[in-house]
């Protein structure tokens, strides 16, 4: 077997979402790139996935694919509506999102979008509330309500997961179901270096929360496919309306993400100036350093 492009065990042994099941025809072969390796995958009629590495295709090329030299099958599983695979040997089970199983939720892939950025930059942007009024003006935030109020961040040692709680932000249109602006409560989980789950108060049921998860598939160190899972309470809107709303939000983030320099996330504490509102980001960077993640980051020591 040829040497893998990515040699970072902290990243190789993770599970990655590569495609939304609903968007695939059964028994049809698809291609994608994960950590610079070209993969070929499909689901059979019973919904069972299979994923293989294909060596003969130059990375990034999707035109004119010929039958390639195929390698051994990779681990593959289905979770939260996506095919997940790994180029290494995943040690842990995939993190759990219990809400996904609740029968009255709408579960869907809002979209899979390609972005010229690193996976950790995409996650860090997802955790940031400070940009809401400026980047998502009059939707997820509005001037003059720009203050990021005090919130709490901790690393749960048993689960090896970051949790940010007590985040409250004024949002003019928090979701497709919003009828007016409201203070919205947020909770963030980061259970995987390149996956994050956001919980936000549901406009239709104040005792429950909508779930929006970002599963980032690193194509290379500076290019990703971002899969956006929604598990929300919305009985009024069509899937396409809900999906387009999230695509619009993500489309606003795109130029910000693609213009960050450097594209890799610097882990050194003095590389970028942080403010109090960046508490989640600081914890996230330290957590990646502690896990020894090298891919898509600029290490503190380098």
């Amino acid at each position: 077997m040829k040497t893998k492009c990515c040699s970072d065990p902290a990243v190789l042994n993770l599970w990655y979402a590569i495609a939304a099941i609903d968007e695939l025809e059964s028994d049809h072969s698809y291609h994608t790139t994960l950590l610079e390796e070209n993969l070929k995958f499909k689901v059979d009629g019973n919904g069972n996935p299979s994923v293989r590495v294909v060596n003969s295709i130059p990375p990034g090329k999707t035109i004119g694919l010929k039958q390639g030299e195929e390698e051994a099958e990779l681990p593959a599983t289905v979770a939260y509506g996506y095919i997940w695979t790994s180029l290494g040997e995943p040690e842990n089970e995939l993190f759990s999102i219990p809400e996904y199983e609740e029968s009255d939720r709408r579960n869907m892939n809002a979209a899979t979008v390609g972005v010229h950025t690193s996976a950790p930059r995409a996650i860090e942007n997802f955790l940031d509330m400070g940009h809401f009024p400026f980047v998502h003006s009059n939707i997820l935030g509005a001037e003059p309500h720009t203050e990021v109020r005090e919130y709490e961040v901790e690393v749960l040692q048993n689960e090896n997961e970051i949790v940010a709680t007590k985040c409250v932000f004024y949002q003019p249109k928090a979701a497709t179901t919003s009828s007016e602006g409201a203070d919205v409560e947020y909770l963030y989980r980061v259970p995987h270096p390149f996956c994050s789950i956001l919980y936000k108060s549901s406009p239709v049921d104040e005792s429950r929360m909508d779930v929006i998860a970002l599963f980032v598939q690193p194509v290379s160190e500076e290019k990703v496919r971002a899969h956006m899972l929604l598990s929300i309470l919305d009985t009024d809107n069509d899937n396409s309306v809900i999906g387009q709303f999230q695509q619009m939000i993500f489309g606003q983030d795109k130029p910000i993400l693609e213009n960050q320099v450097p594209k890799k996330l610097p882990l050194g504490s003095r590389a970028e100036t942080s403010i109090r509102a960046d508490k989640s980001a600081i914890t996230y960077r330290r957590w990646l350093s502690a896990m020894g993640v090298k891919y898509g980051v600029l290490s503190a020591t380098s």
Partner: peptide, 10 residues
């Protein structure tokens, strides 16, 4: 009139 171009290919 929204047409779900992606991912729906409407």
């Amino acid at each position: 009139i929204t047409v779900d171009y992606y991912p729906g290919r409407e």
